[in-house]
Simulated assay, not measured.
Amino acid sequence: METDEYIYGTRAVIEAINKGKTVERVFIKTGLQNELIHELISLVKEHEIAAQFVPIEKINRITRKNHQGVLAFVSPIEYTNIEVLLPTVFETGKDPLLLVLDQITDVRNFGAIARSAECAGVDAIIIPEKGMARIGADAIKTSAGALHHVPVCKVKSLTKTIHFLQESGIAILASTEKADSVYTSGNFNRPVAIVMGSEESGISEAVLKIADEKLKIPLLGNIESLNVSVSAALMIYEAVRQRS
């Protein structure tokens, strides 16, 4: 059976994968062994879907219906391949404006960022497969539906993707309090990807190390940081301002 956010039951999950649904993660009851489960595990490996053996209680907390020990989370959106999308943006004659999100785990922050990105005409949001807020009903609602309009690219490695962007002529501008330059001094009037990190740990060192430019948003009060969705909106709209 299926809801907006998950599918339960072994055959239903197998059918969803075979039909090309965007299955993000599969929970399988610990110790469950039968022919259908082996078929499901093979499919999961073939399609490189994250799978986890979990206690039955974890699945029961999500649904009490006849799940047969199997539950899969489905994405309400279709993901886009950044390597396919980027050339099409260049072909329009526009300087691409991309947004890279690193370790943004709060669903509401992610939704709010997506809303600002769509309103500002961001060409794509790039997110990692792991360590990222799951795109479900809450994210869609918080984004005011923006996640149905702005392309989202899920990638295995942010660092490899950033190298690809740089090789494609995209400047990587990282928003970090560790920077010396204020964000308004950055050059957004060119092909750019803005990188935002979580409020707790910021941008990962591996990503920060390969950024072309590091920019900070000045803080004049006693609070140490802005909400990441506010910071993202400031960075995005600085690009809009400079390009206007």
Results as ranks from 00 to 15, higher is better:
2 E>F: 14
3 T>V: 10
10 T>G: 11
11 R>T: 15
11 R>C: 11
14 I>H: 09
15 E>D: 15
16 A>C: 10
19 K>S: 15
20 G>M: 10
22 T>S: 14
26 V>D: 04
30 T>D: 15
33 Q>M: 11
34 N>M: 08
36 L>N: 14
37 I>M: 06
40 L>N: 04
42 S>P: 04
43 L>T: 13
46 E>N: 10
54 V>I: 10
57 E>D: 13
59 I>F: 00
65 K>A: 13
67 H>M: 11
86 L>M: 05
86 L>H: 00
86 L>A: 04
87 P>I: 00
90 F>H: 10
94 K>R: 14
95 D>G: 08
97 L>S: 09
98 L>D: 00
104 I>C: 03
104 I>E: 03
105 T>L: 12
108 R>V: 07
112 A>F: 04
121 G>M: 08
123 D>L: 02
127 I>Y: 02
128 P>R: 03
128 P>F: 06
132 M>C: 12
133 A>N: 00
137 A>N: 12
138 D>G: 09
139 A>N: 00
139 A>G: 07
150 V>I: 07
151 P>R: 04
152 V>C: 04
152 V>G: 06
152 V>E: 05
159 T>E: 12
169 G>N: 03
170 I>M: 04
171 A>I: 07
173 L>P: 01
174 A>G: 05
175 S>K: 05
183 Y>H: 12
185 S>E: 15
189 N>G: 09
192 V>M: 03
196 M>G: 05
197 G>F: 11
210 I>M: 02
215 L>P: 01
219 L>R: 14
220 L>E: 14
225 S>K: 08
226 L>P: 07
229 S>Q: 03
229 S>K: 00
229 S>N: 05
232 A>F: 01
232 A>E: 03
233 A>N: 10
236 I>W: 00
240 V>A: 05
240 V>S: 05
242 Q>W: 02
